[in-house]
Design a protein around this nucleic acid. Structure first.
Length: 370
DNA sequence: AACCCGGGGAT
DNA sequence: ATCCCAGGGTT
């Protein structure tokens, strides 16, 4: 209450904060911009869009090689649209947030159907997998629209420069308005693509979450957070709840050729549309052997428990999986797809790869270290 | 508004 | 162990 009163008093007595200089930031960007693969080519909306979707909650270092590999396999939006889902899923395996891949595929088909990418925020926003952030990012970077996408970098830079003490996510509209106000200045509005990427680079290389390098910052002189000494504490965030522990039991069935039984998971939900190793649902209560066996792909087989557990952390829960292994009895038929261990390691999400590693450590599958 | 959805790197 | 990352969809 006292703080709010003081801020009101200050606002009534002191002149308004000077706007950060877009020119200073752009001059810094011209000297220190990161060399990223999607900045090398001309402004191809397909390549920009692909990079933005891959970069959702995924680091630049992880995306760069996958972006190149994806484009080598699907060089155009038409090629992506025409590809079968299985090929897209295989190419996305390991990148996480698999709804991104499903929406990417649907978006490519929608873009081809309408004859190309829309060049406005509203048009982009209507496409599958394109939310407020990606619409603004593609509009600014690929089409030169003067809009600022609000990502984690821009949130952090803006909260610090303006010393916004309100916690996320409540502060988001205020931060977006502040950043959009900067874009309205010259020369930012003449270089929208560079200005938003300059904000990204500032947040990624100088205005980092912990220990920001304020002495190197082109905006240090006008940064209210630095001046008041609270920059490293911003932006404030609402506390997150603890993650529960869940357990599951999985079944690794090998045929006489050493191939493994996998099944395609349901198209929506956790790891949706991806291949998986058959198993029980994942729940907080543990599984008895009898109870788990009801979920086995084949009841009559030489199932044996492998030592240890596979652990995997998801955003909202921690997972521990036990693994039973068996070989396919002659003449038995089961539903699913048979893949070699090497092919499985290529196609499976990380959680399932943990199970494969457990099996390899127990000598239950051929380790493909060749 | 609340909840769901991966994986990897830095600290 | 925790935080963070060029977020989006569903209900």
């Amino acid at each position: 209450m006292i703080r709010v009163a003081l801020r009101r008093l200050a606002a009534s007595v002191l002149p308004p904060d000077p706007l950060p200089s877009a020119g200073d930031l752009l001059a810094w960007y011209d000297r220190h911009r990161r060399a990223l693969p999607w900045r090398e080519a001309a402004r191809d909306p397909y390549r920009i869009w692909l990079s933005e979707v891959m970069l959702q909650q995924t680091t630049v270092a992880a995306v760069a090689p996958r972006w190149r590999r994806f484009l080598a396999r699907f060089p155009t939006v038409a090629a992506l649209a025409a590809a079968p889902w299985e090929a897209v899923a295989e190419e996305w395996a390991g990148l996480g947030y698999y709804a991104r891949a499903r929406n990417l595929h649907a978006c490519a088909q929608a873009v081809v159907a309408r004859g190309g990418f829309p060049d406005t925020v509203e048009g982009l926003r209507a496409l599958p997998g394109i939310g407020a952030y990606t619409a603004a990012a593609v509009a600014a970077i690929a089409f030169g629209r003067p809009v600022v996408p609000l990502d984690g970098n821009v949130e952090r830079v803006t909260a610090r420069v303006a010393a916004v003490e309100e916690a996320l996510p409540g502060a988001r509209p205020r931060l977006a308005a502040l950043a959009q106000g900067w874009m309205a200045q010259a020369p930012a509005r003449e270089r929208p693509a560079d200005f938003v990427q300059a904000l990204f680079d500032l947040g990624a290389t100088i205005c980092v979450p912990r220990s920001p390098a304020c002495v190197l910052c082109p905006w240090q002189a006008g940064c209210a957070g630095r001046i008041s000494g609270i920059a490293p504490l911003l932006p404030r965030k609402a506390p997150k709840p603890a993650r529960p522990l869940k357990r599951g039991v999985h079944f690794l069935l090998s045929d006489s050729a050493g191939r493994l039984l996998l099944r395609r998971r349901p198209p929506s939900g956790l790891l949706g549309g991806m291949l998986g190793i058959p198993g029980t649902p994942w729940r907080e209560e543990g599984w008895s052997t009898e109870e788990a066996m009801a979920h086995a792909p084949l009841a009559s087989a030489n199932w044996r428990a492998l030592p240890g557990e596979a652990k995997h952390g998801f955003t909202h829960f921690e997972l521990r999986m036990a693994l039973l292994a068996a070989t396919l009895p002659p003449g038995a038929a089961v539903e699913g797809e048979w893949l070699t261990p090497a092919a499985a390691a290529q196609a499976l999400p990380g959680a399932m790869q943990r199970l494969l590693a457990l099996a390899e450590a127990a000598g239950a599958v051929a380790s493909d270290t060749a």
